[in-house]
Design a protein around this nucleic acid. Sequence first.
DNA 1: ACCTACCGGTTGACGTGTCAATGATGCTAA
DNA 2: TTAGCATCATTGACACGTCAACCGGTAGGT
Lengths: 163, 163
Amino acid sequence: MTEATPGRRGGRQLPTADELRIWRNFIETTAALGSRLESRLQGDSSLSTGDYSVLLALSEAEGQAMRSSELASHIGWERSRLSHHLGRMERRGLIRRQECATVPRGAEVLLTTAGAEAFRGATFPHLRAIRELFVDALTPDQIVAAGEIAAALRAQLDVLRKD
Amino acid sequence: MTEATPGRRGGRQLPTADELRIWRNFIETTAALGSRLESRLQGDSSLSTGDYSVLLALSEAEGQAMRSSELASHIGWERSRLSHHLGRMERRGLIRRQECATVPRGAEVLLTTAGAEAFRGATFPHLRAIRELFVDALTPDQIVAAGEIAAALRAQLDVLRKD
DNA sequence: ACCTACCGGTTGACGTGTCAATGATGCTAA
DNA sequence: TTAGCATCATTGACACGTCAACCGGTAGGT
């Protein structure tokens, strides 16, 4: 029994061919799913999923406004990314930025009426697309399993964060 | 029992709150997994996952060369995307392009020795990262389930391709 | 008071992706 | 023959993301 059943996990250096095949299908399919949803949203509303996240957060915020870094951490973006994105959204009139009254050197992000309207128009088709492309594609058991898989992957990402 | 148990699938317009929560975890986690793998590969080898796909295909091709559109369909990219990417890879000396002898107006993509070497150096760390971030994160049952979920999602993407 | 260190936010450079338009070339049908 | 027409590939314009540098202002320590 030389080296048989090697430690169940981590004994192996590399994935098997089967694991690799599943990996490729999994990562490519989820990426394709994301971009399909992106283009559905784009076609239905001229918003990107990034726009949608920002507008969703602002819609639910008090006074339809948030400080920039608060918004960034709420939707899990780097501040640089948010700053670039807000610049583009501001050019399109979806949001406004102004000096924050309470916090020095803070920037307040405000939802404009055009932004609120664009968000309202986008919500229903977006949720419908999620149902069609994700919920309807899977059995109830698979949806649960997908949630567990996502949780397990997230946990591993967190464990290996700093290396 | 007015409208109870509505047709099991498609009777509902919108996802439930639970489904939506799972959806968000799923799509965000898989996206994060992809970008973590991207940055691991970048750190280990100075290659992107796009570079890796191209180099993998060329490595396995006869004569370490393929026609451009052949390569595009092999890795599932649009031709425009591939053309841009090949331009960047050519600037870095990973590949070369030349007129195709057999096919008129065809471009032959060749793996350079530098490209082959970069690919060889990247393979092992990349596969190891896949094991650590994906295979090791899941139970064997979950890996199988992930494969089935990916297949089901892919099938739905194909069904809804043209709308 | 001064130096430093951090903090919130922006900017620039660059890689990446999509879309639409453009060559360049062969195929086919009036 | 020639007027389309499809095909192979590239290009330009633009959106998006990351990284590193930067700016202005506040806070702490000496």
